[in-house]
């Protein structure tokens, strides 16, 4: 499978190679096993140093499951997750520990992701304590430094999560990740639970951390407005597969997969003059069940452009113009590209 998500840079930090994550429900009365839910179904992507890749898609497309597989929180059913070209599943205990430090995750719901009975400083220090990294005094200093980097002070360090606002809680989540000195930060819908004025504060924080710490980001998001601001590349997922990857600029200028086009056309723009003249593409029906996929192209049941070929043959992710790959038999060409 061609992987167009990789720029020419050599330092590949994190890589998914045909990763599948299937969930098998328990059998009914020991007789028949229901078909597995194919949450992630053959995804390949690469994250190089300094990159910001956004995986976008709607609920149930498998983007959060993919993030968990990349963070080695769940094992893929098939395929490999590689950190610095070493298979995470077969690497030794020591290597895996280093990988877990280098790839950190920030979660969507900050109040749910923080232990309500621990003080902020303890929450942020937990990873260092667990890994027995440095002397205690050094850990305390690293925690203070991490909190300072996310814009929290000593008064916040002694607080409990419940005493902080949503934006401050998310800053704690970010501090907990960067205190481990990671190379990759996987951000799973980190701004979704926040108000718009706070959202932008968190985006600005993440951007400044990228510059000061040289972090590579994998953003999991359904918010296409935020993605345009933070990502350098975009990968669109639909029913467990990547249907399009492109640089952020070319993706927003001229999406090529019919699903990408529909997705972008659905996002409202805060300008009534533009909204009044915009053409919205209404998708047909609902998303099929990930345990009962359509034959051929998974999007064909909702695609206005679908042809007989789309039902017979599943399209592979193929190169389509510079830096772009599309899994569609009839991709939409940019008019002036």
């Amino acid at each position: 499978m061609i992987d167009a998500t990789s720029p020419l840079s050599t330092e590949i930090l994190l890589e998914a190679d045909s990763v599948c994550v299937h969930f098998q429900a328990a059998s009914r009365f020991g007789l028949t096993r229901p078909p597995p839910v194919r949450a992630v179904d053959g995804v390949s992507l690469r994250l190089v140093a300094g990159d910001s890749l956004a995986v976008v898609g709607e609920s149930g497309c498998g983007k959060s499951t993919l993030a968990r597989a990349l963070a080695a929180l769940i094992a893929p059913t098939a395929g490999q997750v590689r950190y610095r070209r070493r298979d995470v599943a077969t690497s030794g205990c020591h290597e895996r520990r280093l990988m877990r430090r280098a790839v950190q995750m920030v979660f969507q719901n900050p109040s749910g992701a923080l232990d309500p009975r621990l003080r902020v400083e303890t929450i942020v220090r937990e990873g260092l304590d667990a890994g027995a990294i440095g002397m205690r005094a050094e850990r305390v200093a690293r925690v203070a430094h991490a909190l300072d980097m996310v814009g929290l002070g000593a008064q916040h360090a002694r607080a409990y999560p419940g005493q902080l606002s949503g934006g401050q809680q998310q800053r704690v989540g970010i501090a907990r990740a960067i205190v481990m000195a990671p190379e990759v930060l996987i951000c799973d819908e980190v701004t979704s639970a926040l108000d718009v004025s706070i959202k932008v504060q968190i985006v600005e924080l993440l951007m400044s951390l990228r510059d000061s710490l040289g972090l590579a980001y994998l953003f999991i998001s359904h918010d296409l407005g935020i993605v345009r601001q933070i990502a350098t590349r975009v990968a669109v997922m639909y029913l467990g597969q990547i249907v399009e990857t492109a640089s952020t600029a070319s993706f927003y200028r001229a999406p090529a997969h019919p699903y990408s086009v529909a997705l972008l056309s659905a996002v409202p723009i805060p300008d009534p003059a533009i909204e009044a003249t915009r053409h919205h593409i209404e998708l047909l029906g609902e998303v099929p069940s990930p345990s009962n996929m359509p034959t051929g192209c998974r999007f064909r049941t909702r695609c206005a452009q679908a042809q007989p070929r789309c039902a017979a043959e599943a399209p592979e992710l193929r190169d389509f113009g510079p830096g772009r790959a599309v899994a569609c038999h009839y991709p939409i060409s940019a008019s002036a590209d």
Binding site: V196, S197, V200, Q229
Partner: peptide, 30 residues
Amino acid sequence: FADPRHPYSRALLQCSPRIDRDDRASGAIP
């Protein structure tokens, strides 16, 4: 939307991320 007069309306509009513009939404509301 064309010309918000209250500083809050203006700030809210400015920090709303848009899919049709490249420029970083300027100025988070402190």
